[in-house]
């Protein structure tokens, strides 16, 4: 491994990126810690606060081939007012769509505090020619995206061409201009926690404002140990450079319970300062309904049926 790194490394040595140290991961310890953080019992007023926060940090996502402008408009309406029957539900953080639909979302959310996020850069594989990817990013920003979610070039990363992966992220950051850059690591394809840690550091040093777990397009998505592994990388980064990078967890987060487990993991690892939409996001499509169901269960004491909530 260190041989490969020696052949082509980003600025720094085998266990560092650009002078920032990469801490090795104790996989067993990591999984145990993540599991223990997921046993926290969150009840009554804490649960209400957790549900509220989960909505505030949510990136309401639709990334389907079948997305239509109308569907995105409907999603934007929900984003601003998630529960049509309850004004007290706060808006979500952002709506996340494909670039072609950014103008639609930007128009629908012009008067709204909800940000427009766009995937770009050859999502989900990231294997379009670099010029094309950069052009896509610039296009999305010009069309009104406040945040851009790009993917790490796993092909380059997994074959040890770290410099290439690094340079591409740096170039994407340039192309983003004022927009926030989130880098999707697609942790399910990286193979080990050490690789996830290394990819996290590489993305952060290369200029990512957020690091994000998954595209949601493969089977393995965000898991508690993955979230913890990345949160610890962010903590390392913050301690060594003073730069606060955000964390976005996405893929497979469907229930309110999962959401507050992640809130606990981030809160315990990075501190309460990270539990804001500026530094933490949950990317999800079906999570919002479950959170709203839990919310109304807390309010009315009655279990709800899923059909009473929106399908999208």
């Amino acid at each position: 491994m260190s041989d490969l790194l020696a052949v082509e490394t980003p600025p720094g040595s085998a266990d560092a990126v650009g002078g920032v140290r990469i801490t090795p991961v104790d996989a067993v310890g990591l999984e145990q810690r993540a599991a223990s953080l997921c046993t926290r019992s969150i009840k009554t007023s804490s649960k209400a606060a957790a549900l509220e926060l989960a909505i505030q940090v949510m990136d309401l996502t639709t990334l389907e081939g079948a997305d239509t402008p109308e569907r995105v408009q409907a999603l934007c309406a929900r984003a601003g007012r998630p529960d049509a029957t309850d004004w007290t539900v706060p808006p979500v953080a952002a709506v996340c769509v494909y670039p072609e639909l950014v103008p639609v979302a930007a128009e629908a959310l012009a008067e709204s505090p909800v940000a427009v996020a766009s995937v770009a850069g050859g999502f989900p594989a990231g294997l379009a020619p670099l010029e094309v990817r950069l052009a896509e990013i610039a296009w999305a920003v010009a069309a009104g995206a406040d945040e851009v979610d790009i993917v790490l070039n796993r092909s380059a990363f997994l074959s040890g061409r770290y410099q290439k992966a690094y340079d591409e992220i740096a170039a994407a950051k340039q192309a983003c201009g004022p927009a926030h850059l989130k880098v999707i690591l697609e942790t399910g394809e990286l193979g080990s926690y050490d690789q996830i840690r290394r990819a996290s550091m590489l993305a952060m040093v290369a200029g990512a404002d957020f690091i994000k777990t998954s595209t949601g397009k493969i089977g393995t998505s965000a898991t508690p140990p993955t979230a913890l592994c990345m949160a610890e990388a962010i903590r390392d980064m913050s301690e060594q450079t003073g730069r606060a990078v955000g964390l976005k967890l996405a893929g497979g987060i469907r229930t309110a319970k999962q959401a507050w487990h992640y809130l606990v993991i981030v809160g315990e690892t990075l501190g309460l300062g990270w539990l804001t939409p500026e530094r933490f996001r949950l990317g999800a499509s079906s999570l919002l309904n479950d959170v709203l169901m839990q919310r109304s269960k807390l309010r009315d004491g009655r279990y709800q049926r899923r059909e009473d909530f929106s399908f999208d």
Partner: peptide, 8 residues
């Protein structure tokens, strides 16, 4: 009670 009150 929770069964009778369940919306589903």
């Amino acid at each position: 009670p929770p069964l009778a009150g369940h919306g589903a």
